[in-house]
């Protein structure tokens, strides 16, 4: 298994706060990795830096062997690295279906010269629609396609947000608390579905999650962050036994 994502000494500061303070890590292709840590330990910030939404102050990032720390977010996306947001950032003025149809790459009809000539992109649109239709039923959003995304429940928003990342044919997903705000029973369900999708599309998953009891059943490897630094890393069972981690995080 080859390495898909690699970080070396990544630093991100907000004024005097070192929100991410020299993070080095590497993730193998096709694995499911967890990222945990207390509130404010810099997890979301790290994801923002990887996906290009925030620029690292120091350090290097490679994705599939390409340096990405200087690329704008849309270029990083096109390499196949896609991120979901901790608080869903849906296109609230658009329907559920339109939200799903935004991300796919290489849409012919996105070029304003092609857009008015519907015959040019009709076939592509129909195949994308089939894909979203399939995804809608998998994400339990069937029948809601015409609903405005502002009008669905919080849990459904979370699912739609995840669905949107899946529509992009990603190679790797950065999921920021995919089960926050959804019912506990559904949380396991979401992880089951994610793992199924991973098999199907050969995805690599990197997941921030506070529900450790759920997370640890599904991940192969875990990084623990504390005050912007990687405090520990290892297999879930190793992390569970790690005293330092228990002190800052599990023990409270």
């Amino acid at each position: 298994m080859s390495e898909i994502l690699k970080l070396e000494g990544v630093v991100k500061c907000y004024e005097s706060l070192r929100a991410v303070d020299g993070v080095t890590l590497s993730i193998k292709e096709g694995t499911v990795t967890g990222l945990i840590g207390p509130n404010g330990s810099g997890k979301s910030t790290l994801f923002n830096v990887i996906s290009g939404l925030d620029r690292a102050d120091e350090g290097k990032i490679w994705f599939r062997g390409i340096r990405i720390d200087n690329l704008p977010p849309h270029k990083i996306f096109s390499l196949g690295l896609v991120k979901s947001f901790q608080d869903p950032r849906l296109f609230l003025g658009m329907t559920v279906l339109d939200n799903l149809l935004v991300p796919p790459k290489g849409q012919i009809g996105e070029n304003p010269l092609n857009a008015p000539i519907h015959s040019r992109w009709r076939a592509q649109e129909i195949s994308l629609a089939k894909k979203s239709s399939d995804l809608l039923s998998r994400l339990l959003l069937k029948g809601l396609h015409k609903t405005l995304s502002a009008e669905i429940s919080g849990g459904q928003m979370k699912l739609l947000e995840m669905g949107r990342t899946l529509m992009a044919d990603p190679k790797m997903l950065l999921l920021d608390e995919p089960t926050a705000g959804v019912a506990p029973k559904l949380a396991r369900d979401i992880f089951e579905r994610l793992l199924a999708l991973r098999e199907e599309f050969n995805l690599t998953l990197f997941i921030i999650e506070h529900r450790l009891e759920v997370l640890f059943d599904y991940v192969e490897y875990v990084y623990v962050m504390h005050r912007g630094k990687v405090l520990a890393e290892g297999k879930p069972e190793e992390i569970l036994e790690n005293k330092v981690v228990a002190e800052v995080y599990l023990g409270g």
Binding site: S51, P73, H74, F91
Partner: peptide, 13 residues
């Protein structure tokens, strides 16, 4: 229009 940050992170230039 709805969310510039989400749109860029979904690959839109």
């Amino acid at each position: 229009r709805d969310d510039q940050i989400a749109a860029t992170s979904l690959g839109k230039d």
